[in-house]
């Protein structure tokens, strides 16, 4: 292909790609921009770029609906459920990757199948059990549910990462006198840090955005950002700027995490079927 033609083509493709990308990104962009407007200016689309910018909406969101409490609930629930899941899944993934038996495969498949059970199928009993145990609207309750929800994904992701660690090195540790616990702590975990980190990130993202259980099992106390945002679904006068500010705050941290972990995401979300 000739140089000139190739450059011309690259220009065209670049323009098309940027236009498409901006259209897809537009709702997010618009939300962020609107969050820096006053309520009156927010709906004045025709003069959107002439009106002044302000950060007052952010303060209003905080004072009106205590954004930070929900934010901390989200952090506690997503990070807590992820750490809990890691605690269970690191030993399990170790077993599957390094001491497989004839049944390991079936167990992994079965774990995956639990992930496919629709939440509505078990909503009623979980709701009733939580009600009986007093776990409704409780951060611990949600942490446990989200941990269980994501455990199969976490085990699978870790399994695919562990599989890439040469078994020789673990055996060397055994020869060097390491017990199983020390083998995990001193050798496997440090070597798998990149894999564990991306598993952690993906799981935090999934837990942060989970919006079935968080909406159905919380009320006021343990409500995370998903519920906080949902409380804006019945409008009260002009609230575009406040809604935008709240939304920006809710998605910003996770968007950054998502961008960081985008490469590993594919692997995690497809259970290693696409790498």
């Amino acid at each position: 292909m000739a140089r000139a033609a190739s450059t011309q083509r690259k220009v065209t493709v670049t323009i098309v790609a940027w236009v498409v990308a901006l259209v897809i990104f537009f709702p997010i962009l618009w939300t962020v921009l609107t969050s820096f407007k006053s309520e009156g200016d927010a709906i004045n689309i025709s003069h959107f770029f002439q009106t002044p910018w302000s950060i007052e909406s952010y303060f209003e969101v905080q004072s009106r609906s205590d954004y930070f409490r929900h934010f901390f609930n989200s952090v506690i629930i997503s990070v807590g459920s992820t750490l809990l899941a890691l605690l269970f899944s690191i030993p399990a993934a170790w077993s599957m990757a390094f001491a497989p038996t004839s049944r390991t495969r079936d167990i992994m498949m079965w774990m995956l199948s639990t992930k496919m059970m629709p939440a509505v199928g078990v909503l009623v009993p979980i709701y009733l059990i939580f009600k009986t145990l007093g776990l409704l609207d409780n951060a611990w309750g949600l942490m446990i549910v989200l941990m269980l929800m994501n455990l199969p994904i976490v085990i699978w992701m870790l399994y695919t990462y562990f599989k890439e660690i040469p078994v020789d090195i673990l055996e060397a540790a055994r020869m060097d006198g390491a017990t199983l616990g020390k083998e995990l702590v001193y050798v496997l975990v440090p070597m798998a840090v990149p894999g564990i980190a991306s598993t952690l990130l993906l799981n935090i993202i999934l837990a942060w955005n989970e919006a079935f259980w968080t909406l159905n099992l919380t009320a006021a106390n343990a409500a995370p950002l998903t519920a906080f945002i949902a409380s804006y679904s019945s409008p009260e006068g002009l609230f575009w700027a406040k809604l935008s500010a709240a939304s920006t705050l809710a998605i910003a941290p996770i968007l950054v995490l998502g961008w960081i972990s985008q490469k590993q995401l594919v692997r995690g979300l497809t259970f290693g079927a696409v790498k």
Partner: peptide
């Protein structure tokens, strides 16, 4: 661990996250 034998692997099986000193010292640490 209980047999008091040492092994040198074909792939060397060095711990990639440890320095040379830490690698050599690992059995003693254990």
């Amino acid at each position: 661990a209980k047999r008091e034998l040492a092994m040198v692997f074909q792939s060397y099986a060095l711990y990639p996250h440890m320095t040379v000193a830490q690698n050599i010292g690992f059995p003693l640490k254990m």
